[in-house]
Write a protein that binds this DNA or RNA. Sequence first.
DNA 1: CATTTATTTCAAAAATTCTTGAAATTAGTG
DNA 2: CACTAATTTCAAGAATTTTTGAAATAAATG
Lengths: 193, 193
Amino acid sequence: MNLPPLTQTFVLHFGEMGSRWGISRTVSQIYALLFLSEEPLNAEQIVDGLGVSRSNVSMGLKELQAWNLVQLRHMPDDRRDYFTTPEDLWQIVRTLADERKKREVDPTLTMLRDVLMQSASNDGDRYAQTRMTELHDLIELLTGWYDDVNKLDTDRLIQLLALGAKVQKVFEMKDKLTVIPGRKKKPSSGAAT
Amino acid sequence: MNLPPLTQTFVLHFGEMGSRWGISRTVSQIYALLFLSEEPLNAEQIVDGLGVSRSNVSMGLKELQAWNLVQLRHMPDDRRDYFTTPEDLWQIVRTLADERKKREVDPTLTMLRDVLMQSASNDGDRYAQTRMTELHDLIELLTGWYDDVNKLDTDRLIQLLALGAKVQKVFEMKDKLTVIPGRKKKPSSGAAT
DNA sequence: CATTTATTTCAAAAATTCTTGAAATTAGTG
DNA sequence: CACTAATTTCAAGAATTTTTGAAATAAATG
């Protein structure tokens, strides 16, 4: 591995975290390297930087492209492929969240819908059915929220995040002024029961 | 594997998703089974349900305990260990989020802090330093938001989630009434620049 | 259209992770 | 304190994932 010290620390850390994040060391490192690089890099430069095989880099880049996490670029008078990550970090966050939702959440939501559909008539396994319904509703609430805030432009999103739980204050203020129609008062706790 | 049909579908699905979520098939399946079970189960019952080895179940339960995802119970006149998942799904979500943050986010935040601290004087690797600072600030904003809303009681949290992007409306309304002190107007986009 | 350059594919090797059975440990019981 | 029941540990085997080098493919150039 042949990298400036700061970059190296970061790349190594990403490589180690990879296994916790569910990606291979090489893929994590490629991403980390591209992330820190001002100019787009080609495969050869990545090989030199990380000291892994050319084919490994090729496959890693393919995977990162499948995740929409890197973009292909071309340089004038150079027919090699160059890769970058978006300059805008929020774009990266959005892509990551979208892709993880697609791979890690949506299949379960679909499965729950199917299973609950089929078992609607059936009456064995009563408790399991209740649990699955609760889980289904909870995931729908969370993904619904996600889809919703994901529509916000970045400035608004930052505003919202910076506010954090203080939105509560706004609620309270608002409650004194208006009543939102169609909101049922919940007893006191419990999931999407 | 010896389970009622609904439960089996769910357990098998969880097992398959496990690899995407970064946990082993057995651990996922144990969790799924406990999640759907009204009564706490002991190791033997899990072995019977899933058809895996006793030692595998023992290790799986140990891992789930390390994640705080299952709780140990005892039955009168029975010295075996029984396990459950919390009844309250929101408790589960909170635990999951806390633990993942701890394992998957906090170490990176720490690393970034350290690296940026050290390199404050140093002036090589200018762009990498900028990128890392941006990433650091973004993660802080996100985890700060998380810590903040995590303090809300569940009813308030559900309220907030159900509202989704419609909080925007509240902003707009509020903007007409008050000015929050200390908020800088951002130019138009960009991360935690 | 042969040659050079860049990239991808793929089967095998290497590394890692998961699962198991046997043995060890822990903790109750008579 | 010997005996039994419950659980854990751990080394070895199985399975999966990652990485590699060699060969194949694709794309540009003269």
